[in-house]
């Protein structure tokens, strides 16, 4: 249906990362890499976000937060794990409180490797996520229409 891939809005969440990847995520929005030219906007609001960028692994304290953020995002949504920590737990993997990568708590679609992930790699990951976002949006629209028609048939 609607073309949505021109306007992906990000929600950036910092799990138990060392902040290396976060700096790189912010770097993608600086003039040098200028992610906004793809229409990307860094909104801090899960209700308005389409793509969840998560850096750092999941620990016992932030697990609930990550789950809640994911649930607060409206469909269609895509999750991108940025950096080794978010992919697998990375160097923190064996810590007593670390549960693993982001996929230990929420479904992750795109994995961006690197320690820290380079801005180029992050933009690459976002571009992949945007394609997925468009696909999901089409599926979501079909689902909504089916729901509506189903509702009409019943009512």
């Amino acid at each position: 249906m609607g073309k949505v891939k021109n306007s992906p809005w990000l929600l950036h969440y910092d799990g138990s990362s060392c902040n290396g990847c976060d700096i790189e995520v912010l770097a993608t929005l600086t003039p040098l890499y200028d992610a906004e030219r793809f229409g990307i906007e860094n909104t801090g609001d899960p209700m308005q976000a389409d793509i969840l960028l998560i850096t750092g692994g999941i620990n016992t304290q932030n697990q609930e937060v990550v789950r809640q953020l994911y649930n607060q995002m409206p469909r269609p949504k895509v999750v991108v794990a940025v950096g080794v920590c978010a992919c697998t737990g990375g160097v923190f993997k064996d810590c007593y409180n670390v549960l693993g990568g982001a996929d230990s708590t929420i479904p992750v679609d795109i994995y961006v490797p690197g320690c820290a992930a380079r801005p180029q790699a992050i933009i690459d990951g976002i571009v992949k996520a945007v394609e997925l976002f468009q696909k999901r949006s089409d599926r979501h629209d079909r689902y909504e229409i089916e729901q509506k028609e189903g509702g009409n048939a019943n009512g």
Partner: peptide, 11 residues
């Protein structure tokens, strides 16, 4: 583009 996308999101 932004508005069009927002119209297509889950409510």
């Amino acid at each position: 583009y932004d508005v069009r996308k927002l119209m297509n999101k889950q409510y």
